[in-house]
Design a protein around this nucleic acid. Structure first.
Lengths: 185, 185
DNA sequence: AAAAACATTTGCCATTTGGCAAAAAGCGAT
DNA sequence: ATCGCTTTTTGCCAAATGGCAAATGTTTTT
């Protein structure tokens, strides 16, 4: 819980009472490897702060191929934009630990804490920018460069994520990534 | 100006007085082809609503290559997230017409109109989602598919944008795009 | 320990895309 | 119509990546 508060304080101020309120609304969740935090087609039940582990965002394209869009790692707020059904799913790549909030509790925080929405918006915008930067930079680069950038963008994650997911994120085949790795070392 | 109001009303309600206030703060700007709306390294001077024409977002990568990241077309709000220097530039691909607001005037709207920030946030989020969808889908697809998707995502723009910009957006060479076009027809 | 299931690497060859330069086409000014 | 300039198309060949299947390595189950 401490981590989450510390994280929030980067984006605005909170007094002791507010911190207490936030803590009282939170719950802990342990999500074992391969299980889903959100599922496509269902309304995300809770909002979560990832304390530990790696989550991947993925979906099936029109050819039925599973595509990994993105990875989240430690200390990351996972929240949808509006109250929409998810069009993709969030799956634990490793065992994960979350701080979660029900929609109802989240709403109460938003109604009670004056700058809550503003803080959350700041966070979401920051995330969006980062995502766009990472993904946008991949286009117009060859596979090797993309992989090297992946290593920079997601430090300490390469050895915790199966090759197949990384390949899918990079938009290349598993064999290609395997060869690229061989050439880099 | 009407277009902008109509656009805003999609994202919230405004009374007659508010509409009048917004209009009073706005200015018109005609930007000829090839000129810049924002320049990299400079603080964007104004916020703009693109009424007519096409704008491209571009930057130079570390090899000095010019990369086109995105295109904006008619009826699109162009606003930065925070008060940061732009890290890229916005250039008119065709002659453009804008409704613009100085930062000062924009701030006044934000301070005066109760739901202004909320509306603008909705708009920005929507744009961001669209951008992510379009760009994200490109990875993991071959050049031909990317071009076909470009045609869907940016209808009526293909013939108004030079091939070189489109190729750069798709992350392929001009010659490749030229060949792809030949094969499609 | 062996078997089964799964993940990664490798070989072989086909296809796609890039690099470079020249040719062709388009366009504006004269 | 012609010249000069820019954009787009082509040809040729090299390099990168994909597709498929077999081999190898790893992990889990029995």
């Amino acid at each position: 819980m401490k981590e989450f508060i510390k994280y929030l304080l980067q984006f605005g101020n909170l007094n002791q009472q507010q911190i207490h309120l936030i803590s009282s609304k939170a719950a802990e969740l342990e999500l074992p490897k391969d299980e889903y935090f959100w599922e496509a087609g269902k309304m995300p039940k809770h909002i979560g702060f990832l304390v530990n582990g790696i989550i991947r965002v993925a979906y099936y394209d029109n050819k039925g191929e599973e595509i990994t869009k993105y990875f989240f790692d430690e200390n990351h707020l996972i929240k949808d934009w509006d109250n929409f059904e998810a069009t993709f799913y969030l799956q634990a790549v490793t065992d994960c630990k979350f701080i979660t909030f029900t929609r109802k509790n989240w709403k109460e925080l938003s109604d009670t804490i004056l700058d809550w929405d503003k803080m959350i918006n700041k966070i979401m915008n920051k995330h969006h920018m980062e995502k766009l930067d990472k993904i946008g930079a991949m286009i117009s680069q060859d596979a090797t460069t993309r992989y090297l950038e992946f290593l920079e963008n997601f430090p300490n994650m390469a050895n915790r994520i199966p090759l197949s997911y990384i390949a899918s994120y990079l938009g290349i085949t598993q064999s290609s990534l395997s060869r690229i790795r061989k050439n880099i070392v």
